[in-house]
Design a protein around this nucleic acid. Structure first.
Lengths: 360, 360
DNA sequence: TTGAAAGCGCTAACAG
DNA sequence: CTGTTAGCGCTTTCAA
C-alpha cells in the first residue's frame, strides 16, 4: 500500500537500518545522510506504519482510559486534561466507556492484550482484585484516578478536607441547621465527603443528625447525577418544613446541586435566602449557576495522571505513588456570601505529599 | 514477554497455522483440534498481540474520532453512540480532541499514518480540502458527522426543517414577535437554522426583521456555548424593552438556551410568561431545564456513523452516501405550551433518503 | 558511521 | 483438515 522504509532506502541509496535511524533521530548518522533521507521521506510523503513500529519496538504509544462513561461532567473535564497531555506527548488515547462493571473487566482484559497499550488509566471505580496480579505480572502500568489501590499509582482528591471547607464556610455564615445531600456511600468520595461534613459540624459543636442527610441513589447509578440531586432536594425541603428546619445544604457534587437548584426553584424555595447551597467539583456549569462549590482541579488531574502513567513506564519497579490534591472553596452566590465572582478559584496541588502506601 | 501462538502450537502439539485458524474461528479445523487448542489458550491465558495481528492482517480494528473537544454536550452524546457501537463491533476508538483547526490537520495526518486506523470520523468541522486527495488515494474511509463533503460519506441533520418546526410551534402558540438567538453564520447549522426560522415566519406572513436575531460569537468560539446564549438573551431583552417587543425566542442550541434561561432569571424575566423559549438539540440538560427543544437523535447518529464507516471499509469504491436525520420537536415547559413532559421525544431517521451527491 | 540480517507475533497462501 | 512457509514494516543487534 503505502511507502515503506524500503522505498526510502532504495531511493536514498542507503541501507534499511540507516533510514530507520534517521527517522528516529538516532545519534549515529552523519548529518548529510540524515538530511538526504529526510528529504526523500518528505518528498514521498512517507508515513510510518504505526503497528509495525509498535510490533518491532514493543511500545504502543497508546494509553487506554476506562471511564464510567460520561455520566458526570467531572470525567469529561479530567479527560480533557488527559487528552491535552497525550497530544503533547504524542500518545494515542483509547476511550473505553463503561456502563457496568463487567464491561470494565472486559476492557481491562482487552488492555492487557499484549502490546496493545502502554498503560491503563482507570477512573473512579474499584479496581477489580482479580486483575491486580495480571497487571503486575505483565508489568503493565496502571494509574487509578479518583479511586485507590495500594498496588498501583493512584490519584485522589482530599474529599474529607474539601467537605470540611464547604461545611465550615456554611457554619461561618451563621448556619447551624445544615443538611447534606450525598451519593451512595459505596463510593469513596461520598464516604469521605460525609466524614468531612461531620467533622466540621463536630468542630463547631453542632450535633450530627442523620435525619439531615439524604441520599438518593436511583437504581444502579451511584447517585452522582442530576435526578438524584433533584429528588434529594425535594426530600430535604420536605423534611425542613416540619420541626427540623434546614437553612443550608452541602451537596456532594455539582451535578446533584444543579438538580437541587432546579427542585428549589420549582418549589418556590429561594436560594440562598431560604436555603444556602454549596456543591462540590466546580464543573463548568457551576460557574454559570453561580454555585458556590469546592473546586477539584480536574484538567490538571488529567494531565498529571497521564504524566504519572508515562513516568511509570520508565520506572516500572518503583513503589506505587499516591498523588493527592487539595480542593479549594470557590465562593459564588448560592451560599449567600455572595462575591459576584470569585477569581481565587485555582486549586493547588498538594505540595510534597507523595505517600508510598506499600512497597511493590 | 507474553504467551505467543508458538507456545500454544507447541503445547497443543499442532502447527502454527492451525492455532491461528482456531483462534480466528476459521471454518476448516476439526472441532476436536479447535477445542484442544482453545483449551490450551485458556489455560495459558493467552492474549493475542494486537499490533502483530494488525500488521499481518492489515486491519487496524480502530477508528479515530476527530472532535471539537467537549465544547458542547452534543458531541458527548453522539460520541456515546459511537462508543457503544464500537464496543459492540470490537473496535477501538481513538479520541482526538481538537481545540483549533491546525490540530485537526495534525490528527488527520496522524490518522493517515499507514495502518493506524481503518477510518476516521470527522465531526462538525469543514473537512480541509488539502486532505481530500490524500484520503482518497489511501482509500481511507472518512465519515463526516454534522458537516458535509461531497467526496465522503456525510451525516446531516435537517436543521432547516427542525428550525421551521420550532418556529412554527411558537407561531402556533400565538406569538408574532419572535426573536432568534443564533451562533456564527460561518457554521452550517447556524445558517440552516436561521433559514428555517425565516421560512416559518414567511409562511405565516410575519415579516422577517434582522433586529430580532442576535448572534454573539465570543472570540474564536463559534457561539454555540452557554456564555454566548447568556449574552444574547440579555441583548434580546434589552431590545425587547423598547418599541420592539419580543415575546418568544428560538435559540439555535440548547447550551445557548441554558445560558439564556439563566439571563432571563437574573433579569427577572419569566419564562415562558414573559418570553417563550425553544432550543435545539435536546441534550440531557434540556430535559431537566424543562426546555422545549428540537431533538437530534444524537446517540443514534453516533451508532449509525460508526456503522457507515465500517460499511465503507467493506465497500470502498461505492459513491459517497449522505445520511440525513429529521429532528423532532419536543414540547416541554419553556414554550408555554406546557406538557408536563412529552414522551414522544423520539426522533426518527429519515427513511429512504440516501442521496448520492457525487460519483467517486 | 553504516549495511545486513534477525526477529517482533501474527495471518494467509500453499502444499500436502 | 493441517503443517509449512512467506511475509506485514519496522527496530535493533552485529559486523564491517
Amino acid at each position: 500500500m503505502g511507502i515503506t522504509i524500503y522505498d526510502l532506502a532504495r531511493e536514498a541509496g542507503v541501507g534499511l537500518g540507516t533510514v530507520s535511524r534517521c527517522l528516529n533521530n538516532h545519534p549515529s548518522v552523519s548529518a548529510k545522510t540524515r538530511e538526504k533521507v529526510l528529504a526523500v521521506a518528505k518528498r514521498l510523503s512517507y508515513q510510518p506504519h504505526a503497528h509495525a513500529q509498535r510490533l518491532a519496538s514493543r511500545k504502543a504509544n497508546t494509553v487506554s482510559t476506562i471511564i464510567p462513561f460520561f455520566t458526570n461532567y467531572f470525567f469529561i473535564e479530567v479527560l480533557q486534561g488527559v487528552q491535552d497531555k497525550a497530544a503533547e506527548l504524542g500518545f494515542d488515547l483509547i476511550l473505553y466507556g463503561v456502563n457496568n462493571p463487567s464491561q470494565a473487566e472486559y476492557y481491562l482484559r482487552r488492555s492487557l492484550h499484549g502490546g496493545r497499550v502502554d498503560g491503563v488509566m482507570f477512573f473512579s471505580m474499584q479496581f477489580p482484585e482479580s486483575f491486580v496480579l495480571k497487571f503486575q505480572q505483565m508489568k503493565l502500568p496502571v494509574v487509578i484516578v479518583d479511586s485507590y489501590h495500594e498496588k498501583f499509582d493512584s490519584m485522589l482528591v482530599k474529599n474529607h478536607e474539601g467537605a470540611m471547607q464547604a461545611t465550615r464556610h456554611l457554619i461561618g455564615l451563621g448556619h447551624r441547621n445544615i443538611g447534606m445531600i450525598n451519593a451512595s456511600l459505596d463510593t469513596r468520595p461520598a464516604k469521605e465527603r460525609l466524614s468531612g461534613y461531620k467533622k466540621a459540624l463536630e468542630e463547631a459543636q453542632i450535633p450530627f443528625d442523620m435525619e439531615r442527610v439524604v441520599i438518593t441513589s436511583n437504581g444502579k447509578q451511584d447517585g452522582f447525577n442530576r435526578e438524584a440531586g433533584y429528588e434529594s432536594m425535594k426530600e430535604i425541603i420536605r423534611r425542613s418544613i416540619g420541626h427540623n428546619h434546614i437553612s443550608a445544604v452541602f451537596i456532594a457534587s455539582d451535578v446533584q446541586a444543579i438538580g437541587a437548584l432546579q427542585a428549589a426553584r420549582e418549589l418556590g424555595v429561594r436560594v440562598p435566602e431560604d436555603i444556602a447551597v454549596v456543591g462540590f467539583d466546580d464543573i463548568e456549569l457551576a460557574q454559570h449557576a453561580q454555585l458556590t462549590t469546592v473546586r477539584q482541579p480536574m484538567h490538571e488531574m488529567g494531565t498529571i495522571a497521564l504524566q504519572m502513567l508515562v513516568d511509570r513506564t520508565k520506572n516500572p519497579d518503583a513503589s506505587p505513588k499516591l498523588s493527592t490534591f487539595l480542593p479549594e472553596l470557590v465562593i459564588r452566590q448560592t451560599c449567600g456570601a455572595g462575591g459576584k465572582e470569585s477569581s481565587s478559584a485555582l486549586a493547588s496541588r498538594d505540595g510534597g505529599i507523595e505517600l508510598e502506601p506499600s512497597a511493590t
